[in-house]
């Protein structure tokens, strides 16, 4: 079962995250559990594969909002990073950034299902 401790270990600032939901731990954990299923990841991945940087930015931007609201670092840090590159339409290594994001998402999913 997902726990605050496990999330802390993952690198999440659970204190800030919990404060944002008025200390409602149950709600917080339930919201975190929805993250691995968030459509944003698939949308981002697909847009990058199609080299559609505009759609990729939109997807990343949406994800960023949600992840930051839950203070889900380090996953949120990576998403913030890719969002900024996409906003500037940088010639960056999006593929490896995406891989990193998916890896962190998988780890989070394990925490959620443990």
């Amino acid at each position: 079962m997902i726990t605050i401790e496990a999330l802390k270990e993952f690198g999440t600032d659970t204190d800030t995250g919990l404060k944002r939901v008025m200390g409602k731990e149950e709600l917080y954990l339930r919201l975190v559990k929805t993250i691995p299923q968030n459509e944003g990841f698939a949308k981002l991945e697909e847009a990058l594969e199609n080299n559609d940087l505009n759609s990729a930015f939109e997807a990343a931007h949406g994800l960023k909002g949600v992840l930051c609201n839950l203070e889900l670092s380090p996953l949120s840090d990576r998403v913030v990073e890719i969002t900024e590159h996409l906003r500037a339409k940088d010639d960056a290594d999006y593929r490896s950034m995406m891989e990193e994001i998916l890896k962190l998402k998988d780890r989070l999913e394990q925490i959620c299902n443990s």
Partner: peptide
């Protein structure tokens, strides 16, 4: 908000 997580966080803040 299209993101359920954002809706719920705000909801939790304001519902009282």
């Amino acid at each position: 908000d299209d993101e359920a997580v954002n809706r719920e966080i705000l909801g939790a803040m304001l519902e009282e």
